[in-house]
Structure formats: C-alpha cells, structure tokens
Simulated assay, not measured.
Amino acid sequence: MRKPILATAVLVSIFPAAGGASAKSPTVPLRDVFEAMGAKVTWTAASGRIEIQRDEVTLRFQTGSGTAYKNGTAVVMDTPVTISASGKAMISAYAVYPLAKNYKKERHYLVQKGDSLWSVALKYGVTVAQLKSWNGLKSDVIQAGQHLTTVSPWYIVQKGDTLYSISGKTETTISALKKANGLTSDRLSEGQKLTIPAAPSVSAPGMLVEGTFPLMGRTYLPFGDTYGDARMFSLGQTARVHEGNDMEANTGVPVFAAWDGKVIRIGWNTYGGWRLTIEADNGIAMYYAHLSGYADGIALGSKVKREQLIGYVGSTGYGPEGTSGKFISHLHFGMYDTNSSWKPLNPHPYLKWWETR
C-alpha cells in the first residue's frame, strides 16, 4: 500500500507526550505547515533564524535550538528545530498546534465556571462595556457554556467583498449574515456596515469535553450539520447517508488529532480516499477522511496524542487508489462507537464545542 506524503520528513522530537518524549518523535516541514495555515515565514539561512507571523502570533526559532519564542515568551520544545537531508527546517508534530494557536485573540470565548465579565475583558484586552455592547448583554451576569464575542461584531464592506468571503473571514454563515442584517439579496455596497452575529451558546457533550478541534482557527470555512445527508456516490448504487461532518479547507491545511488514541485503520478507502481512524481508550473511533497525505509518525498501530499533527486536508476518494478532485477539498470527520458494533455518532455537537475551546 502506498502512503501519500505531503512532504518528506525526518525523525527527531517536541512537546513531550505522556511518559516523556520519544527518542524519535515525528517531525514535519516547518515552512510548509505554517504557510498552509496562512502564515508568513521568513528564514534567514545564514543565521539559521526563522520568524513566523500569523494573525497576532509571532514565532521565532533558531535552527538547532529546542527553545521557541511565542510573542516574546520562551517555549521549551522537546526537540530542536533540525534540517532534513533535503534542506527543510523540521519541527515536531507535537509542537505545531500549541505554538500556532492564538489562544488570547480568538473571535469567540466560551464562558467557564467562575468567569466574570471583568475577568474575560481582562483576558482579551477589552472593556466590560465593549463585551456588553458586542453581545447585547443587559446585565453583568454570564453563565458557563455561554458564547461571548470578543472582537467588534461590526464589519465594513470592502471593495470585492461578497457574503461568502465575509462569512469566511468572520466565522459565520451567509444565511446568518442575511438574517442579522435584514438582507433580502446577496448584493452588498462598498462601505456598508454589517452586524456579525454572535455564535450561539453550545452545550457540553457527554464525553470528550477536552477534545481539540481538528483544524486550526481561520484555516477552514464555517460549517453546518451534514450528518445523515444523502450521498450520491455509492458502490453498486446502494443508497447511503453521510456519517460525519465536512469542513471545507484548502488542500494541505494541517489536520490535528482531536483526542489521544491508537491508529487502527490507515490507507486508501474508496469513499474516504486517504483516511485515518484513531480509536480512543473509551472505544470511540475518530475518522479523518479525504486527506492529501499523512504526517510523519502516523502508521498502523502508532499512538497519537491530542493536538498532534496527523495529516493534511485534501480531496481524495470516490474512485480507485489515488483518485482526487471529485469534490471540493475538505476534511470529513466522523465518530463511531466501537463498543456498539461501530455505531455512527453525529460529531457536530462535539466539533462545535471543541471549536470554542
């Protein structure tokens, strides 16, 4: 079986997994991975210094060093940045998510037990008055599980903007934008002021509440619940339904493990293309499909840690091995209960909860 690889990787190591770092931790190409997430990467080969800018996150690395700097704060990695035989700077698959994640500047915040408007305002560098205005709050009382918009919910239409492009920039949907602004058509005017609707409150799922959303913020478009939808492509023309949720993203965008587990299935599947199934200790299997390739360190039987980079978004599947481009590039994410004969579960409530963390 051929294993597709986005880029050749070598073995080294980063943020320690449970029980300590492996002597041969998986690594991935630093530039390729961060540029796929929309970051600007500058590498000065003479000095070995690498700088990355993505949104409000600035990262600095030194080849050969195991310390990174995130917005000026030193972060100790479990392995230094190394150079592969092909001349690529390599970083541990465990390091990408915690370094790239913009924890303090996310558009939404999910209220935790013990939070107050004052504590949330302090965390995000805004005022209580702004939080109340942006979220339409009439009092200072907030509750665990409530969503708060942490940036201005207004958007000024720029030349070339469409409802589709604005929905992607602001993490909402076209229908929600039209409803919030009383729009009866898709037509926009330059300079028009739009209200960006706040995310609805989401209830915690009954398990896996500490899971990680499998894509980094602002690398994918807003998504809905497509679980149970009919699917046209089928072997033998047998009717089938969609057993997961789809998140549209560009080919090559990094995919991260939602939970710790063990790789129990990997390789080509006619429907899922290059797919990966990781089973958690509680018997819930998580299915990542249509990948363009796997990250280094991913193989049948390998142990995977939550937040580990495991693969890359693609459009593979719906045909013999190697078929791609039959549909828009996206990640299909499914969940199955192996304790109940692989009963499919709707992953949408889990994904929407993880998305806010």
Rank of each mutant, 00 (worst) to 15 (best):
W154S: 10
A249L: 00
S139P: 03
D225V: 03
E210N: 15
L137E: 07
L122I: 07
R240C: 03
I174E: 00
T173M: 04
S116N: 03
L194F: 07
H147M: 15
K138F: 05
T162E: 01
A230R: 15
Q158N: 12
R218A: 13
A230I: 13
Q143W: 02
V241A: 03
T212W: 07
W118A: 15
T149L: 04
K193W: 06
G217R: 13
S185P: 06
S139D: 04
H147I: 15
V157D: 09
A180P: 11
S139A: 09
F223I: 02
D186W: 07
S189H: 14
T127N: 00
G228D: 11
T212D: 06
L148A: 08
G211C: 06
S119Q: 08
P153C: 03
A129N: 12
K132D: 09
L117C: 05
W134Q: 02
Q192G: 01
A230M: 12
D246P: 07
S165V: 01
V241G: 10
P197T: 06
D229S: 12
S133G: 09
L221W: 13
S189V: 03
K169F: 12
S139H: 10
N245C: 13
V128D: 08
S185Q: 09
R218P: 00
A198G: 15
L235M: 12
K178L: 08
M247H: 01
M232S: 14
T173I: 00
Y164C: 07
L235G: 10
I142V: 09
M216N: 04
F233Y: 14
K193R: 15
A176E: 12
G125P: 01
T170A: 02
G168Y: 03
Y220D: 00
T127G: 11
Y164Q: 09
H147K: 13
K132G: 10
A129E: 15
R231Q: 10
M247V: 04
S203G: 11
A176K: 13
T162H: 02
S175Q: 13
S203T: 12
D161K: 05
V120Q: 11
Q192C: 04
F233K: 12
L183V: 08
P200C: 00
G182V: 01
R231T: 06
S165I: 01
K159C: 06
V209H: 07
Y155E: 01
Y164K: 07
T195A: 13
T149M: 13
T238G: 12
G125K: 03
G114K: 12
A198Q: 05
L183I: 03
S133D: 14
V141W: 04
T150H: 04
S234F: 10
P153F: 00
G206R: 14
N135G: 05
V128G: 06
A121P: 04
G145A: 00
S152V: 08
S116R: 08
N245K: 01
E190V: 15
T127E: 05
L221G: 08
S152I: 05
L131W: 04
P222N: 11
I196L: 01
G228R: 00
K138P: 09
E190M: 02
G236E: 05
G228L: 05
T162A: 07
G236Q: 01
Q237L: 13
K159T: 11
A129L: 01
L194R: 02
N245T: 15
A121E: 04
A121C: 02
P205M: 09
G206Q: 13
